Amino acid sequence: MVGGLLGLSTTGKHRPVENPPLVLVGCSGGPDSLALAAVAAFFATRGEVRVGAVVVDHQMLPGSAGVAARTAEQLRGLGLDPVQVRTVDVEHDGGGPEAAARAARFAALDAAARELGAETVLLGHTMDDQAESVLLGLARGSGTRSLAGMRERRGLYARPFLKLRRAETLAVCQALELQPWHDPANSDEAYLRVRVRHNVLPFLAAELGPGVTESLARTAGILGHDADFLDGLAGQEFARIAQLGPDAGDGPAEVTLPEDELRGLPPALRTRVLARAVVVLGGCQPSQERLGAAETLLERRGSAGPVQLAGKVSAWRTSRSVAVPHEGRGYGKLVFRRTA
C-alpha cells in the first residue's frame, strides 16, 4: 500500500540506500493521517526512504496551536524527521471555508516539499472520504473529473489509504496506543460533507446494502481512468489551438481560443479545453455551471461577456475587426484574462 506507492519492495526483500529520498506525511493529528504516519515510519526503518511530516495549523479553531504541537510531538516519537509545523492564514475568496482551508493547506505542503527536497507527500484520505467525494459530486451535478474523486497518485501527492476504511485507521491508532485528535468540525452538521458522512451514507447502506461505500469508491476508480484519457486529449487540443500571452512573470496573462476551433471539438473536450485556459492563468478548476456559462458565449453574436470563472479569471467573446471578412456566427474568439 504505502510501500507500493513509494516504489519500494513489498516482498520483504529490501536494501538500505546511502542517500534515501525524503517522503513527507501531511498530518492533521486525526486518526487517518496519524495511522499513515505510523505505517510510513515502519518503512523508514528499512533504510530505503526517510520519512518526515508537516502539520498545518489553520488557526480556525481555539487551541489549534496546541493541537499542532502535540501532533508534532507524537510524530517525532514515531521516529519521523524532520517534522515541521506550518501556520497558515486562511483567506476566504468566495469558495467557502473548506475550500479556502484546503488551498492554504496545499500551499503549505507544496512549500515544505520544495524547501526540504521531498519527492512525495502522503495524504491520509480513506475509502470513506472517496465515497463522500463521489456523492458530493453527484449532488452538485459535477462532471467526470469530480465524480472520479481523489487520485491515488497525482504529481507530488499520494494517497495510500484509499482502499482502507476509516475504522481500520482507528484500529491502527488503538493498536499502537496513539492519541489521535478528533476535529470537532467532523461532527458539525453545518457542513455538507458531515451530513453526507453521518446521514446519507448510513441511509444508503441500510437501503442498498453494506457495500455501498466500496461501490462508490470503485466507481471513482473507473471514472478516473476515463477522465485521465479525456484530459489527455483535451491537453493536446489546447496546445494546438490556444494562443498564450503576454507573459505576466508567473505565467500568461491571457489565453485566446478561436471559436471556430472550439465549435469543432466534441463537447467533452470543449469544456475541458475551456477549463484548461482558466487553470493555465492560475485560476481554480471551474464548476460545470461556470463552464456552461463560458460555453454559451459561443452562441452569441458580436462581443459578449464577461463571464466570471474560478480564481479571478474572466472570459469574453470578442469579434474580429470589421475589416476582416466574416460570415454568420463563425468568427471571433474567446479571450480569458486574469481580472486581478
Rank of each mutant, 00 (worst) to 15 (best):
Q59F: 01
D93Q: 15
A131R: 02
A104L: 07
H182R: 14
N186P: 00
S215T: 13
A277Q: 04
E177S: 15
P325Q: 06
N199Y: 07
S142L: 05
A158P: 02
D110L: 06
A35H: 04
H198I: 01
V39F: 00
A44W: 04
C284S: 14
L34P: 00
R270H: 09
V51W: 02
L6I: 04
R145I: 01
S9H: 11
A139Q: 14
A206T: 09
G63K: 03
V335Y: 01
L223I: 07
F42I: 06
G224P: 04
T219F: 03
A139Y: 06
N186C: 10
M127S: 00
G79Q: 12
V255I: 14
Y331E: 14
G232L: 06
V322T: 11
G332E: 02
P184T: 09
Q288S: 14
V335F: 02
E168S: 11
T10S: 13
V67C: 03
Q130M: 11
H326A: 11
G302S: 08
P20A: 07
S319R: 14
D89K: 13
W181E: 06
R329S: 07
R140H: 12
R317S: 03
R76Q: 14
A167E: 15
T256K: 08
V134C: 00
P82H: 09
R165F: 13
L230I: 05
A99D: 10
E152V: 12
F203N: 06
D188I: 07
G66Y: 02
A175S: 12
S303A: 15
A40Q: 08
A44M: 10
V194F: 05
A315I: 01
R76E: 15
R151M: 05
A268L: 13
